[in-house]
Simulated scan of single mutants.
Amino acid sequence: MEITGNAALIVVDVQKGFEEPGFWGPRNNPGADGNIASLIGAWQATGRPVVFVRHDSVSPGSPLRPGQEGNGLKEYVEERRGKGGAAELFVTKSVNSAFYGTPDLDAWLREAGISQIVVAGIQTNQCAETTARMGGNLGYDVVFAWDATYTFDLEGPFGWRLGAEELARATAVSLHGGGFAKVVMTEEVVAGALGG
Rank of each mutant, 00 (worst) to 15 (best):
L162D: 00
P21L: 09
W146R: 12
T4Y: 06
T131A: 01
T186Y: 06
E69V: 07
V143R: 13
E111P: 00
G195Q: 07
T131P: 00
L89K: 11
L109G: 02
V50F: 05
A193K: 09
T92K: 11
E75K: 11
A168Q: 05
F99Y: 11
T149W: 01
R81C: 10
G25Q: 06
V118W: 05
A172N: 13
R169E: 15
D106L: 07
S59C: 03
E2N: 06
F158V: 13
I40Q: 04
S94G: 13
P49T: 14
M1G: 07
A42R: 09
K16I: 10
Y150A: 10
V183H: 04
S115D: 11
S94R: 09
E75N: 09
Q68K: 14
T131L: 03
V142L: 04
F152A: 03
E155I: 08
A98N: 03
G47R: 03
L167E: 02
Q15D: 03
A148Y: 04
R110S: 06
T171P: 03
E129P: 01
A37F: 09
V143D: 04
E75Q: 13
G84K: 05
D141T: 15
I3W: 05
R48Y: 08
V14C: 02
A168L: 02
I40A: 04
T186Q: 02
L194F: 08
W43A: 15
V143E: 01
G139A: 08
K74Q: 14
G156F: 13
D56I: 08
I122K: 00
G72H: 12
P26Y: 07
T149S: 01
